[in-house]
Nucleic acid binder design. Structure first.
Lengths: 259, 259
DNA sequence: CGCGCGTTTGATCGCACTCAACCCGCGTGG
DNA sequence: CCACGCGGGTTGAGTGCGATCAAACGCGCG
């Protein structure tokens, strides 16, 4: 049980260190964070509106989504979360929930107290910057989704989403060369793309008949990666991030110890 | 000239302290930030793609937008920035530009070096948290836009945008009781809502004929605030933020001095 | 076996796009 | 002083993408 917690936190650290340089001491502090496991059934909200959160949710396994909804109850998926994502790290600084979290499949999450995260961030400026950076990367993904919904027709939207998910799964170590698991229903894909499930179905079919990709049974099988990217007008630049070191001279911890 | 810089920075500080508690020392450090003024003509990009930014842009006056564009050159406005907004504070932690910045009207901005911002954030954890929180508030606005584009028809989208801009202008001290200046063309509004300018025109007309609001000559005149909010399914919850104090016990600066 | 969920397909509808023309106010230059 | 260009707004006619409504299918499961 303790090993599982450790493994989950290591995944979180791996995600951070893929983007920001953290030294040993900082990594150890993160791995020492308290966390409690929670299993969530499929189709369940696990962070609800109007709540004031005290914990952030680290996804170990499954597929979850942040979503918004209109007064008439229609849902829009804001962002999909895959294993290793801290679904609502942002809640540390904005605890009032404006966009609930929902499990698309059975998922297991680890709840980490805001207090502990704030403490680590306060002690280590590089960690604070890494958290901030993580949030802005997510914001970038949302921004691209906005472009996707605002300016692309259904085929392009779907192709773009599939490209993005492939790259995100690849980043966390999943083998995506031929195919990858993406257990979202056509209904849910529609909720992410602002389209109806019936139209998703027709669009999936169109992409298959174009020889680009097959989406079936929760598995995405890519026939023509180049073609899919151009169909979705996909430029991975917003996902491929290089390492940034926030331990810069003149703004390092040593300076703080002096103050 | 020095007064103007001071005034611009005070606006930035005001924006931060509206959401996060900062003590005198932290405020003084922020007001001491270096900044250089830059005037930007209308319809000009002032932060371009592929650049690696070294400065963040504080908007003193005018109307600017962060936007994305497809391969075919169509633009989607991701977010509008009004005076007092730090348009790309996020670039401190994600310096690679993925979404350029564009001036919709003649605007004056102040460029603040990333290095200086990082230094202040590293010295004062509460400032780091305030920056992070500021970024997540923006991300929340983008998330709501995604819901807006994905799940609302043209009238609702426009109404929602007008409500949001009214509230945002109100927050920075503009009198919006009867009307407020919003110098965006119908073309640009279309770019923000994922609609064509002709359809914006018809939708503006529809809202006017419904007795809700008039948009003309860069001025938004509201006839029926309640009606406009319900037409746009507008819930200001995502904008109305209470103060958060990051100087919490157990995660305060004193702890750091001890370490 | 029957039920429920997700997928598939058909028929029709309608919102928003496209194409096109025209108006207006403004600035510029002959 | 007027001619002209230009950017933005307005309106009309026709089109098409995606929504809606409806029915059937396949499959896992109790």
């Amino acid at each position: 049980v303790h090993d599982r917690k450790r493994a989950a936190l290591e995944r979180f650290v791996a995600r951070l260190t893929r983007r920001s340089v953290l030294n040993d001491e900082e990594v150890q502090a993160l791995l020492a964070l308290p966390a409690e496991m929670k299993d969530v059934a499929a189709n369940r909200d696990f962070v609800r509106m109007e709540e004031r959160t005290t914990h952030a949710c680290l996804l170990e396994d499954g597929l979850t989504a942040r979503f918004g909804q209109t007064a008439s109850g229609e849902r829009q998926i804001i962002m999909l979360h895959i294993p290793g994502d801290m679904a609502d790290l942002h809640s540390v600084v904005t605890p009032k929930v404006t966009t609930p979290l929902h499990a698309l499949t059975r998922s297991t999450i680890w709840r980490i107290p805001h207090e502990s995260l704030k403490e680590v961030a306060s002690r280590y400026p590089a960690v604070a910057h890494a958290f901030w950076r993580d949030g802005m990367v997510d914001a970038n993904i949302i921004a691209q989704s906005l472009l996707n919904l605002g300016r692309r027709p259904a085929r392009g939207r779907l192709a773009h989403l599939l490209c993005e998910m492939r790259e995100r799964y690849r980043e966390i170590g999943v083998d995506v060369t031929r195919e990858f698991a993406f257990p979202a229903t056509q209904q849910q894909i529609g909720d992410a793309l602002g389209l109806t499930p019936v139209h998703i179905n027709r669009t999936v079919r169109a992409l298959r008949e174009a020889g680009l990709v097959e989406v079936s049974g929760g598995v995405v099988r890519i026939f023509d990666w180049e073609g899919l990217q151009s169909a979705g007008d996909f430029d991975p630049a917003y996902l491929t991030l290089n390492l940034v070191d926030f331990h810069s001279p003149g703004a390092s911890r040593t300076n703080i110890s002096q103050s």
